[in-house]
Each structure stands twice: as structure tokens, then as C-alpha cells.
């Protein structure tokens, strides 16, 4: 005798019998009619291209690159930009007045009430004369300085006007030749003065009078053609005086 074993139909409830529905389709939840689409089942879309799908990131990519380049170039503004004459704020001819304004961090060495503050230094400057000289005057202190062989000396006359107690430390009076060579960049001149924008009798590094005149001496190569005088206080701001 052969026994036939028939498995129970899926979804067939106890009340199911001949002539009734055979049960829910596997993808259809209870309570939903056949033919309806569940709300969380993704509706097939038309396939977008790679460029459209990544449009946002493509727009952000150049922004990210700019930010990365800026972040990795911090040395430019942190170390290079503040030290040295990089920003020409005004350019005039010799004999004309230029206005130099720039901020600096004051340590309060000469004016204690300005200690540890950022101060705006403003000064009007005029190059009154520039000429070669055969001799150097005696320095305020130390031995006389002779003009070395293979060098010539320039005398630069300048007139300044500024509020009293304007900080003058770090003064640079630079002669620039037509080939870009910079003579006299040091804050100390050929006579040993480390306060080139102050009068020789100045007691400190701040101005004492509203207007005053100074003379500074610079060594240069005999063949140099001086085309500019630059004035700065360590930078980055400076003014340029074109030499005719």
C-alpha cells in the first residue's frame, strides 16, 4: 500500500477549505490587498549618471582643495608675511610726502601703558635728499668708519612728522637698485646707529617732537643705479620713494 504525504499549503489557516483563497503572497503583508505597493518599498527610478549623483561633492571638491591649500600655507602668513617689507602702502617721488600706517605689537619698553597691545603706527615721511658722499661723519660712539674699498656711500635725508611718542624702532631705510638689489636693509646703519629714524640725541625709540629730520648713510656697490628708497619698520608695510 502506498501512502501519499501531501505538505500543508502555505498560509492556509485552520478555516481554509476547498474553494477559498490559498493565503497571502510572501511579499504582501497582512491587511494589504493584492496589487497595492507598500510605502517603504523603493520605487524604481531612472538610473542617474555618475556626475549627477556626485554633483554636490564635485561642487565641494574645489572648495575643499582651496581650504587645504590655505591650511598648508600657514607659514606664509605666520612667518614670512609679518617679517620683511612686503606690502607697499604708498608710492611717491623723492621730495613728496608719503603716509605710512601699519600695526605692530608693542611690548611697552618705552611707553609702559602700551605694553602688550596692538598699536597703529602712523607717520608721514619725505625723502628730502639722496646723494653720494666721499666721507662718513663721525659716529655717535665708537671709532670713525671709513668707506671700504669697493664701496660707495649714500647720504639719505628724511623728514618725519608723527604724533609724539610714536614708536620708531626697527626703522629701515633701504636703497633699491634697478636690478632689485637692496642696500641698507639692516636696522643698523653703517655708522652703527640702531635707531635710524631718530635723531642722534634721542633718548629712546619713540619720537619726542611732532616733526624732525634725520640723515642715514648706506653703503652700495659703485656700479649700482639707485632707483628707489623704501621706508619701513620691519614690515610688512612700507612706502616707496622713486628716485629720479
Amino acid at each position: 500500500m502506498t501512502t501519499l504525504v501531501t505538505p500543508a499549503a502555505s498560509g492556509m489557516g485552520p478555516g481554509a477549505g476547498p474553494g477559498t483563497d490559498q493565503g497571502w503572497p510572501p511579499s504582501l503583508r497582512p491587511g494589504m490587498l493584492p496589487g497595492t505597493v507598500p510605502p517603504d518599498v523603493p520605487v524604481p527610478e531612472g538610473r542617474k549618471g555618475w556626475w549627477r549623483r556626485n554633483a554636490v561633492w564635485l561642487v565641494l571638491l574645489p572648495v575643499a582643495m582651496a581650504v587645504a591649500a590655505g591650511a598648508s600655507s600657514f607659514r606664509v602668513w605666520a612667518f614670512w608675511w609679518p617679517v620683511g617689507l612686503h606690502h607697499e602702502v604708498e608710492r611717491v617721488a623723492v621730495g613728496e610726502q608719503a603716509h605710512l600706517a601699519g600695526e605692530y605689537y608693542d611690548l611697552g619698553l618705552d611707553v609702559p601703558e602700551r605694553a602688550n597691545t596692538t598699536v597703529l603706527r602712523e607717520i608721514d615721511a619725505t625723502v628730502t635728499s639722496i646723494q653720494q658722499v666721499d666721507r662718513l661723519p663721525p659716529p655717535s660712539w665708537g671709532d670713525p668708519v671709513t668707506i671700504p674699498d669697493g664701496s660707495v656711500a649714500y647720504e639719505v635725508g628724511m623728514h618725519f612728522a608723527a604724533e609724539p611718542k610714536t614708536d620708531l624702532s626697527g626703522c629701515q631705510i633701504v636703497l633699491v637698485a634697478d636690478d632689485g638689489t637692496r642696500y641698507g636693509e639692516s636696522t643698523t646703519d653703517v655708522l652703527g646707529s640702531s635707531n635710524r629714524c631718530s635723531t642722534p640725541d634721542a633718548a629712546g625709540f619713540v619720537s619726542a617732537r611732532p616733526e624732525w629730520d634725520v640723515t642715514s648713510f648706506v653703503l652700495a656697490d659703485p656700479a649700482a643705479k639707485i632707483t628707489q628708497v623704501r621706508l619701513g619698520f620691519g614690515g610688512p608695510e612700507y612706502v616707496t620713494f622713486d628716485v629720479p
Binding site: R135, L136, P138, V145, T146, P148, D149, G150
Partner: peptide, 12 residues
């Protein structure tokens, strides 16, 4: 110091 200083320079 300065190299090859001129003996004929200014003495101030």
C-alpha cells in the same frame, strides 16, 4: 669687519 678697508677713507 669690513674687508679691505680703504686707508684713504674718512676719519671723520
Amino acid at each position: 669687519g669690513y674687508a679691505l678697508a680703504s686707508a684713504g677713507g674718512s676719519e671723520g
